[in-house]
Amino acid sequence: MKPEKTPRALIFLDFLALLALATAFALVIFYAPFELTMGSVQKVFYFHVAAGLAGMLGFFVATIAAVACLKTGSLKWDVAGLAGVEIGMVLMALCIVSGSIWARPVWNTWWTWDPRLTTALIMELIYAAYLLLRSGLDDARRRAKLAAVYAVVGFISVPLTFFSIRVFRTIHPVMIGSADSSANGLFAMNPSMQTTFFSSLAAFSILFIALYWHRYRLGNLQAEINERRAALQEEGE
């Protein structure tokens, strides 16, 4: 017996995410042109950036949920916040590792202390601390409140970290907005590259929504189990 039937829309979304990912992957492999100075490794860029942006979206959603949790005190927002943090951490970690793999042949190093890399790493640390904070608290209401405060504090410091490291020079290619043309590994996107890029972005956005919905349902299920167990224990006493 399933606790609650998976909604039709969610199953549809799962298939849509799979389809979109497969399409984007096919575009990356077969349609997108090769970049001449970097070779085929440049193709990782499409998924790398999409995963990073989707990860940021996760942290952003978590912050909004945290603010809502502090305002309303509803535990639903706590579940929503945790879902955002977890998915954000996973996607951001994948972004960091894939970026590292890209950097090895292009920058000739696995890692540099440039603003984006460093900020991404510090973000992982902040949200790891968020998870540790949660695991140290048993009372659901208090956990929701304290975790929400930390999520807000952490998210405030992220842009500050970014800009403070940016004051040092960066060698990371700036893809959107102004570009420092001396930056190593920079390339101009031609139209077919842009098509591939935006379809990857769309695929990861759909993937994010599907994952988020699943994680939110899981969180609710976990909350229900904890509630029922607490009620049973009280009865037993």
Binding site: L36, V41, F47
Partner: peptide, 25 residues
């Protein structure tokens, strides 16, 4: 001459797609 970096490409995609798959599991 285009450098051959296909091994890195395979590794990169393996990490991203494998990572998402593990998370789904």
């Amino acid at each position: 001459m285009m450098p051959d970096t296909s091994a890195y490409m395979v590794a990169g995609f393996l990490v991203i797609i494998g990572g998402v798959a593990i998370y789904v599991l």
